[in-house]
Design a protein around this nucleic acid. Structure first.
Lengths: 393, 393
DNA sequence: GTATTTTTGTCTGATGATCGATCATAATTG
DNA sequence: CAATTATGATCGATCATCAGACAAAAATAC
């Protein structure tokens, strides 16, 4: 009767199971950049030698795994590292901002191979923006074919593309057609995701960690990771904190048409609209002047405080282990410092235990996140299983 | 090359797999109160007849499944329903509030068989409170033995009991010892969880839904469900919105010792502290007077508005499909109405799509949630598998 | 009543994945 | 050289699962 006492509440998901399929072996290899030797895999998975070798055969012939250089060893025959074959596999990460689009060509290993940046105007037609982004992407690719592409957008992205975007920056864009066009022109699967959410994925370091990533550039957005999984919300609008109402923004008009949004007080757009800072035409100029112009510095600090106050509520609500602040404005040391300080001041102690408030790896986090999302989608165990089954059949 | 285009971002968890084990069969049966016939199970799982029957044999002999009355049928031999054997299995759900403890004795089918309510003072010693709660529980049990017990506490609960409770209502309680004592005295596994989180679990209707449940009685707390899974946070403090700083509470002292907490403006404690409402000694009295005393009504409405303003931020952040408001104060129609209205006014449109703001099934939700948590923990597939393996070996 | 239909009960052998072990070979350290 | 460790290529044994076959049970339709 009194056999097993441990009751740690469920309401979670089961821990994967035996994990003995080829897809799972690949997942293991993908998780370690250094790779594993065959002996390692036997140890870790506990599979029989013959079984493992069968899996590896399939993965080898499918070109998903390769044998890299030998590993170190104390004595005896040196083990040979098996690695996920990401060689030559390219991913396109396209980050669409309000005034610029960044395009990165990455290896699946997340190395950035080439980059481009082009001015756009998000309020213009979808066709125009998509056209120039695709054109530039093809130039970067220079004839090479990517395995997939990820697009980060500064608006809520419903995985099923059913969410209306009326009040957002992408009013009257149609995400389904955007995806279709890009898939056709780039000739590879395309994944659309919110930019801040992509950044959050890029910031994840440990498999089950919980973190919130905030991106402050022209607008404000966030991405939420709970136990390693991206939170998208009932309609893909999770993390859209830019339009949370805050008292500091009372009376300030937001570009969404309402009053009092966070983005109306703590965003690049808000900074540019400050009466004392009318001299700055672009956000880049303003940001660059943060070290030299005290007015900028003070405005940035105040914006950081405002964001911190809002994030304190998020901390209380979600109790993340880390908050990563990124974006053109977000990475400014003055901004981050003020933000961190305000969070520590406003949030309740239990939720502050071990909380880190750090700068996001801003220039690359979004691209890396998109790359991860594409990889996860392309090489998820079930999908690998399907792929191998197709080859076999 | 252009085989499979669909890329809907991952960063989630794999969909369970083949689900052919005895544990999974039981999970299926648990999910349907009416049960399934053997033919149903063959259809649903796609297992071979012999395999399924083997699983069922094991489950029968372990007393986990029983054959209930025959089901309807159009023609032919009527199928016999197989059901999870929850008959006679009792769960104790103990809800510890600030001034009262509610104890419910439930069947695993979530029927409430007996209830008790006793006054306690949470600020008193853990031993005293635990003692009287245990005493009353044993009286309710009347010699019967429960399969498990769940305890809902008005403070953050770290699954590993490592979180300090210094600033909370349970300052100087020690959850590990509480769990140990209760397991010993009640002679069954005991699970501790935050009360609002338990309520949230009780409010879940569909497997993958996302919802936020808010409990407003003496204090304020919330529970967050994302895609069917409870969010506990990095240290078990998720959902603790009572101490989020809000402008409306500026200058108001919270019982946590700080200024400006949500709980200092929109909670039962805050209402009782209102200068105009000093005539009410207990929250119950105040709540009962909401229909008759305009002063109470206006204060309650204002509190609802304040909570709504705070919840609008939560809605923007998490984009839940539903918000359930419960607790002694939360269920007041005036409160809920004001809260809903304020959410609709403050939150951004994309996050409001299809959002429901409803009253929680307050009297039972927490108990039902605790019951669910205990059941999920006791009869999770892996645990069932272990149990059967033990019996066999 | 009889025919039909559907579910259930109890077999059976076929299949195939996985295991566990053996034996041989390779490549390094000391 | 010996010792050690990793790898390669087998083999049959085992076991879980599948895919049926066949019969009995229990209802409805005629």
């Amino acid at each position: 009767m009194t056999q097993q006492r441990t009751l740690i509440g469920g309401s979670g998901q089961p821990p994967a199971g035996p994990a003995t399929s080829a897809g799972h072996v690949l997942q293991l290899l993908r998780s370690s950049p250094a790779g594993y030797s065959r002996a390692d895999l036997l140890d870790i998975t506990g599979m029989a030698r013959s079984t493992l070798y069968e899996r590896l055969d399939a993965l080898f012939t499918a070109g998903l795994v390769y044998e890299s250089t030998a590993l170190r060893s104390q004595r005896g025959r040196p083990p040979r590292a098996l690695r996920f074959d990401d060689r030559g596999k390219l991913v396109l990460a396209i980050e669409i901002g309000h005034t610029h689009a960044s395009i990165h060509l990455l290896s699946l290993g997340r190395d950035i191979l080439a980059s481009a940046r082009l001015p756009i105007e998000i309020s213009q037609s979808q066709e125009g923006v998509a056209g120039s982004v695709i054109e530039e992407s093809l130039r970067l690719l220079d004839g090479r074919q990517p395995v997939g592409a990820g697009v980060g957008l500064p608006a809520p992205v419903d995985p099923l593309h059913r969410l209306g975007l009326e009040r957002t920056v992408l009013a009257h864009w149609d995400l389904q057609s955007l995806q279709d066009v890009m898939e056709a022109k780039l000739d590879c699967p395309v994944l659309l995701e919110n930019d801040a959410r992509s950044m959050a994925v890029g910031e994840v370091r440990e498999p089950l960690e919980s973190l919130v990533a905030v991106k402050v550039s022209t607008g404000v957005g966030s991405g939420i990771i709970v136990r390693g999984a991206l939170v998208r919300g009932a309609h893909g609008a999770a993390g859209d904190i830019g339009h949370v109402r805050i008292p500091e923004a009372a009376g300030r008009r937001c570009r969404c048409g309402r009053d009092g949004c966070l983005a109306a007080a703590a965003s690049g757009r808000a900074l540019l609209a400050e009466p004392e800072l009318t001299g700055y035409r672009t956000l880049r100029q303003l940001v660059d002047a943060c070290g030299s112009d005290p007015a900028v510095r003070s405005a940035v600090t105040e914006a950081g405080r405002v964001l911190g106050r809002a994030l304190a509520a998020t901390v209380g609500t979600l109790n993340p282990g880390r908050i990563a602040v990124g974006g053109l404005v977000g990475v400014l040391p003055d901004f981050l410092r003020a933000c961190r300080q305000q969070i520590l001041e406003d949030a309740f102690e239990p939720s502050l235990v071990d909380l880190e408030v750090v700068s996001a790896d801003s220039r690359t986090a979004t691209a890396v996140g998109l790359c991860k999302l594409v990889e996860e989608s392309l090489y998820a165990p079930e999908r690998v299983e399907q792929l191998l089954a197709q080859r076999a059949g």
